[in-house]
Design a protein around this nucleic acid. Structure first.
Length: 140
DNA sequence: GCCAACGTTGGC
DNA sequence: GCCAACGTTGGC
């Protein structure tokens, strides 16, 4: 299984919006960046991800799961843009802030730290487990 | 609100 | 195919 991180501005699409879509999930639409799109194309149903709030909050707030593999973004007028569907699994016990992540030597190489602008990112299993521990949620 | 980093676009 | 100009993102 692979692990990922999805970043969103809560004012546009936040954790509560994601939760409101329930088990059916929702398209992660609006990505117009090749790197991010290519990561989504590599995702499999059942892969898990962190849901990160950018801007003011800057924290991982929940766990999500891929529930549909890459397909054309229904909101794009250009066929080159694909997206996956994700659904909320559970909120984290303790949000893990960007500051906390930066303070962990084991997490210094995270894409979130190295390239903060990329909105869809891969997460290694070691990073996943480390952050789950900090967040007070099961990594499995 | 500013600015650095980065990606994309379009003229040559 | 290069590169300058521009737009966007997100941390500060």
């Amino acid at each position: 299984m692979a692990y990922w991180l999805f970043k969103s501005e809560p004012s546009t699409w936040g954790w509560d919006d994601q939760v409101s879509k329930g088990a059916a999930g929702e398209e992660w639409d609006g990505v117009r960046n090749y790197q991010a799109r290519n990561f989504m194309r590599a995702m499999k149903v059942g892969d898990k991800g962190f849901f990160y709030h950018s801007q003011k909050e800057k924290a991982i707030v929940g766990l999500v799961e891929i529930c549909a593999e890459a397909h054309p973004d229904s909101k794009a007028d250009d066929p080159r843009w694909d997206c996956v569907d994700i659904r909320a699994l559970e909120p984290v016990q303790h949000p893990v802030t960007l500051d906390q992540i930066k303070a962990e030597p084991e997490l210094a190489d995270m894409v979130l730290v190295r390239n903060s602008r990329l909105s869809v990112q891969p997460v290694t299993e070691a990073e996943w487990r480390h952050i789950c521990k900090m967040a007070g949620v099961s990594a499995d």
